[in-house]
Design a protein around this nucleic acid. Sequence first.
DNA 1: CTTCCCCTTCGAGCGCACTCTAAGTCAAGC
DNA 2: GCTTGACTTAGAGTGCGCTCGAAGGGGAAG
Lengths: 121, 121
Amino acid sequence: MGAFLSVSEVAGQVDLSAHTLRWYERLGLVGPIGRDSAGRRRYAEQDVERLRFLCKLRDTGMPVRDMIRYVELINVGDTTNHERLEILVSHRARVVAQIDALQKDLKVIDWKIDFYTEATS
Amino acid sequence: MGAFLSVSEVAGQVDLSAHTLRWYERLGLVGPIGRDSAGRRRYAEQDVERLRFLCKLRDTGMPVRDMIRYVELINVGDTTNHERLEILVSHRARVVAQIDALQKDLKVIDWKIDFYTEATS
DNA sequence: CTTCCCCTTCGAGCGCACTCTAAGTCAAGC
DNA sequence: GCTTGACTTAGAGTGCGCTCGAAGGGGAAG
C-alpha cells in the first residue's frame, strides 16, 4: 500500500489518459514527478490532488495556457496567493456565465421539444 | 425594408461570421440560400431562424455532425418529427448533465477560492 | 533465459470547428 | 469610366487539446 502510483494507476483515478498525464508533465502542469529505479513515474498523493483540481479547471473550460499560468504561480510560492485568487475569481465568473447561458439555451431546446411533442402526438 | 438579408447582415444578427455562414451552407446546415441577380446570398427570415436555433444546439455542445443529421431530417419532411424529437430529448439530457457537472465543479472552485481568500487575508 | 507487459522519450498526427486566402465578379459612387 | 468594397468560389491553413507511434528499457513470471 505504497503512497505512490504509476502513470496508469493515476489515469484510472483522474479523468486523463496516461498519454495526457505525460503531456501535462511536459507542459509543466504537474511535477516534476518522482521516478523509481527504472525511471518510471511515481505519483505522490499531492500530485494526484493537483491533477484532480486541474481537471475541474479544464472541465469548466479553462484554456491550458491559463492552467499553466496558475501552476507557474504555485511554483513561485506563497507570495502569489493573491494572483492565484484573482485567476480563480475571474474564472468563476466565466463558469457562472456559462451555466447561465446553458440554462437559457435549455429553455429554447425545451420549447422546441414541446413543439415536436405536440406535432408528434 | 426587404425581408432578405446579406451574409454580413446575418452575421451581425447571429453569432457566426460570414465565413462560417458560407461554410454552414456548404455543410447543408442551412439553405440552399436564395441569390440575387449578382449571385449574392439573400437570407430569408426562416433561414435566420434556423441558424438561431442551430446556434443554440452548437452553444450547448452538439457536434456539427449531429446538427447535420438533425437538418437532414428537417429536409426529409414531417415524417421525421419523431426522430427529431428523439435527437433533441437526448441532447437535452446531455445539456442537463453538463449544467450539473459545471455546478459541482463550481463548488470545488468556490472551496479553493475560500482557501485563498483566507490565506490572503 | 525467454516471454510479456508496462514503462520511457519525443515528435508526428488527428479531429474539430472554424478561419482565411486567392482569384475573380458585380454594382454603386465620384 | 474608374475605383471601391462587399460579394463569390474552392480549397488550404489554424489553434486547441489531446492522441498516437516508433524505438527501446526493465523487471517479474514461467
